[in-house]
């Protein structure tokens, strides 16, 4: 990890509470870490788990989701739907070997500009400590491995007798 590395956090904020709170943070000129990129959705209930996985796969080091407080959702209960998905998603991501701290769900109301600052700063510090997630680099590495693996098979296949190809693959796997 180099010193100039800075985490890249993708945030999904709901239009009514958290996005507005981030606007309020701006209007109040609160200063916070610059490594969060906010994507506006109408409701935290719109956050498809695929968005989160896609963000991690494309190079995000962490994902933050912001929604309205319980009982306050502009769409009545979209935030609960988000919470349910989030719990499951977080467990799944941890099973995949990704630290749970890289996913965060926060209820931030339109009045809580200060909470936007606190949450983003905290998260930025946490991810700095955890270091880069680097899934794209890992994917590249896996691709390279697979290519090498495939090349190995080809070599073995060209050397081996056709009827012994299966044994060849097993040997290739051990290369």
């Amino acid at each position: 990890m180099t010193n100039d590395w800075s985490p890249r956090i993708v945030a999904f904020f709901c239009n009514w509470c958290t996005y507005t709170a981030a606007d309020l943070a701006g209007v109040s000129r609160l200063k916070y870490a610059s490594n969060v990129r906010v994507i506006r959705l109408m409701c935290s209930g719109r956050v498809d788990p695929q968005f989160v996985l896609d963000a991690l796969a494309k190079g995000a080091d962490a994902v933050l989701i912001g929604g309205c407080h319980p009982f306050d959702c502009h769409y009545v209960e979209g935030n609960y739907k988000c919470l349910r998905r989030f719990q499951l998603l977080k467990r799944m991501v941890q099973e995949l070997g990704i630290e749970g701290d890289r996913l965060r769900l926060e209820w931030i109301s339109a009045a809580e500009g200060d909470k936007v600052r606190t949450v983003i700063n905290e998260m930025s510090a946490t991810i700095r400590r955890l270091g880069p997630l680097g899934i794209p680099a890992k994917v590249e590495e896996w691709d390279r491995e697979m290519e090498q693996f495939a090349a190995g098979i080809e070599v073995l296949e060209s050397q081996a007798e056709p009827c012994e190809s299966h044994a060849g693959v097993r040997e290739g796997a051990n290369v």
Binding site: S6, A22, D23, A25, G26, V27, R29, L30, K31, Y32, S34, N35, V38, R117
Partner: peptide
């Protein structure tokens, strides 16, 4: 949104 979410909340011009 590069005002409320960017220019007004950051202190480093490059960032």
């Amino acid at each position: 949104n590069i005002r409320e979410h960017d220019a007004w909340v950051h202190t480093d011009k490059a960032e």
